[in-house]
Design a protein around this nucleic acid. Structure first.
Length: 416
DNA sequence: TCTGGGGTCCTAGGACCC
DNA sequence: TCTGGGGTCCTAGGACCC
């Protein structure tokens, strides 16, 4: 038996924890630059706000219904997420964290999974203030289905086991809600008259394999109750790391753009060291605003390799800036840029290079010192000169809530 | 005026090897 | 007229997830 925990409207719920007066009020959380809708409370959902919609198109509706808008506060969400998982780990020893607000649980040792889920749900709510839903079934994909159903149940828990019951639900379950079927596949399948999960189960497996390759086939098997996606080991390393941003205003100036690229590279290398990995490959991209098709368009993308895999911020930033230099066009206005590092190897398995003359031990020490200082007294306390002197990259966040749990200056005060 | 960020997996086809 | 068989590695692009 596999349980899937999903935090209800996670980001919106995080904002609500410290503002109980927002209970039953519509809440929307916005992406960077306060651009798109990325989370909605149930109240906001029923008012008709859509995921991913740009908020400026909805200004009037926001005012009309007195919707509470928030800029995204990922420091807060990340910390609350960790607390939720901490509580869960006290109940269950074998679990797989799937995303910031989802975790698969091994429920096979419980004689009464429903009771166990209920206890877990209540404890998470009590300890963190976050409401969760739990779907239970015998494969990951079916537990995802069960979780959908759970969202509408009174207790937010659904145990899906009985064969007839599974068929009943799959007959009403439209394909675009299935885990692993997105917009492309659903419109492709609908052309063949396949509208529900049940319809999909009637198809020939060879045909499914041809249509949706082996991943799609595995998903269909899971719907049939045959487990095809394993539990992931808790400490899988990342295969790539990316830092990218859209700018609130387009940038032409090379100096300014290079400061961003430098900052993105630095951020990537910090994440990389946290993973205890090194990178072999770096790619940099810069894009103009494709919502303004009349303006000159350019999508630059450049990849470069390191002779020796590294996690050194200085080396990584240097190569990234070289990429930028080679593709930057002075007659373009750039709206978005990013740095991706890939081909990651564990730091203790780095292949050395016969002509490598740099003192890697010394560089490592320097990076450790930087990470230590920034960890002690705050991000960017020490950084590279190439990223500029002041925090120019502060992206538009007008409605940012305090970082109640991760910043001393923002800690909640209670009057007794 | 204003449109997010960070990941994963799979496949076909080209280039190469013996 | 007729021209083999069995592999690996890499990349771009397509699909998906939250």
């Amino acid at each position: 038996m596999i349980g899937l925990v999903d935090c209800n409207n996670f980001y919106a719920s995080c904002e609500r924890i410290f503002r109980p007066y927002l209970e039953n009020k519509p809440i929307i959380v916005l992406s960077n630059n306060d651009g798109c809708i990325i989370a909605r409370s149930n109240e906001a959902k029923s008012l008709g706000f859509k995921m991913g919609e740009p908020i400026f198109k909805k200004r009037r509706m926001v005012e009309q219904h007195k919707v509470n808008l928030f800029s995204s506060n990922f420091a807060l969400y990340g910390d609350i997420s960790k607390r939720v998982f901490d509580v869960i780990s006290e109940h269950i020893s074998f679990y797989e964290i799937y995303s910031i607000d989802e975790v698969f649980l091994d429920f096979s040792n419980f004689s009464n999974p429903y009771e166990e889920a209920l206890k877990l749900k209540e404890n998470v709510k009590k300890c963190t203030g976050i409401p969760i839903s739990i779907g239970i079934s015998n494969t990951k994909t079916l537990s995802k289905v069960a979780n959908h159903v759970a969202k509408r149940e009174k207790n937010n828990i659904y145990f899906l086991e009985d064969k007839d019951q599974i068929i009943d639900i799959l007959k009403k379950f439209s394909i675009n809600k299935i885990w692993g079927i997105g917009r492309r596949y659903s419109s492709k399948l609908e052309k063949y008259g396949i509208y529900t999960a049940f319809d999909l189960l009637q198809c020939d497996e060879g045909w499914i394999r041809k249509m949706m390759n082996v991943t799609g086939l595995r998903m269909v098997r899971e719907l049939k109750g045959i487990s095809s996606f394993d539990f992931q080991n808790a400490n899988v390393r990342k295969k790539s790391i990316c830092t990218s941003r859209s700018f609130s205003k387009e940038i032409c100036d090379y100096e300014k753009l290079s400061e961003y690229i430098s900052m993105f590279s630095f951020r990537c290398s910090e994440k990389l060291r946290l993973e205890r990995s090194c990178t072999k490959t770096i790619s940099v991209f810069i894009n103009t605003n494709n919502f303004k098709p009349k303006k000159k368009q350019h999508s630059g993308y450049m990849v470069k390799d390191f002779d020796v895999p590294t996690s050194d911020s200085i080396e990584i930033t240097k190569l990234a800036l070289q990429c930028l230099k080679e593709m930057y066009r002075m007659d373009c206005e750039y709206k978005k840029a990013g740095v991706v590092i890939s081909d990651l190897v564990p730091e203790n398995q780095v292949q050395l290079h016969i002509f490598d003359s740099s003192d890697r031990k010394r560089k490592n020490k320097l990076m450790k010192a930087m990470d230590f200082i920034n960890g002690m007294i705050g991000r960017d306390s020490v950084r590279l000169g190439s990223s500029g002197v002041i925090n120019k990259w502060k992206i538009g966040k007008e409605r940012l809530s305090p970082s109640y749990t991760t910043k001393w200056s923002d800690i909640l005060q209670i009057k007794l």
